[in-house]
């Protein structure tokens, strides 16, 4: 049987290069593919080490395995919001006001919000197992929750519409305001809890005795999720570029149609 089986995905009229582009993904490059494969390998490692190879903890038993997911997601979320703040500053204070920085800020915030949601969920499940409660009004937890809500608001502002530059400027200002807001929230919550309550919930990793394999699993998790973050940001900001182009193209088409209409009217 040497007859070529028609690709079920191919639509009549698309040529071979379009099909291969569709398969490869328009936002990918050689670098991003290598990065993606490395990420996948490390995520598989994370699952293997986190669930199978690493030993259960003496006090926490197997609930300690949540740590290999929880700590890396938290780290990536903070990293992502840091990148958003930095890119916002780069957009605002560089003379060029390059939209590329704005797209990096937006992509990073979106990914950060997702990782932060995962941090909160996995953290509360872990908290239920080790502390007995899903939530505690600890300074770090409260700040994290505020960070989440703040960046949900940031994403809502990005969707307000207007020109790309208007969006960029508005969200860059908000991105920088978030950077000054978070220390204030943390400071006030810390002051509140320390004034009124005996030592709050212990540092979650403080009571875990880390042996070598546990530390290694955590390390794999951190690397895997960091790589995943870079892969996602790379693709997300390229997708944003395409979406911006698409908007502009739409606008151009609408303008041309409009001009044609008015010409017809004036002729009639």
């Amino acid at each position: 049987m040497s007859t070529t089986v028609p690709n079920p995905q191919s639509i009549p009229g698309t040529n071979a290069s379009a099909v291969s582009r569709r398969w490869r993904g328009i936002t990918s490059t050689g670098f991003s593919r290598v990065l993606g494969v490395a990420t996948l390998v490390l995520v598989v490692w994370l699952v293997l080490f986190g669930l199978l190879f690493s030993p259960p903890d003496q006090t926490q038993q197997s609930s300690v395995r949540i740590m290999y997911i929880h700590v890396p997601t938290a780290w990536v979320a903070y990293l992502a919001f840091g990148v958003t703040g930095l890119s916002s500053a780069m957009y605002l204070f560089r003379r060029a006001h390059s939209l590329a920085w704005d797209r990096v800020a937006g992509a990073s915030a979106e990914i950060g919000v997702m990782f932060m949601a995962l941090t909160l969920i996995t953290g509360s499940l872990w908290g239920r197992l080790t502390w007995g409660v899903y939530w505690a009004w600890d300074a770090r937890l409260t700040t994290t929750a505020f960070l989440f809500v703040t960046y949900v608001g940031y994403l809502a502002v990005r969707r307000l519409g207007g020109s790309h530059q208007a969006r960029a400027k508005r969200s860059a200002v908000l991105g920088l305001l978030a950077v000054i807001e978070i220390p204030l929230v943390h400071f006030s919550v810390e002051l509140w809890r320390s004034l009124h309550q005996e030592a709050s919930v212990a540092n979650p990793s403080g009571d875990v005795k880390m042996d070598g394999l546990m530390l290694f699993s955590l390390f794999v998790g951190l690397i895997a999720f960091s790589l995943l973050y870079f892969w996602l940001v790379l693709h997300r900001q390229r997708a944003m570029y395409l979406e911006d182009q698409y908007d502009d193209a739409d606008l151009d088409v609408a303008l041309v149609e409009r001009r044609a209409e008015t010409k017809e009217h004036s002729r009639a």
Binding site: V149, V157, L160
Partner: peptide, 22 residues
């Protein structure tokens, strides 16, 4: 920041309430 934008009635509380928490 929210002035003149569509949907600012619902957006403003979302932006403002976390900031005024301290």
């Amino acid at each position: 920041l929210a002035a003149g934008a569509k949907g600012r009635e619902t957006l403003l509380p979302l932006l403002l309430l976390p900031v005024v928490a301290p």
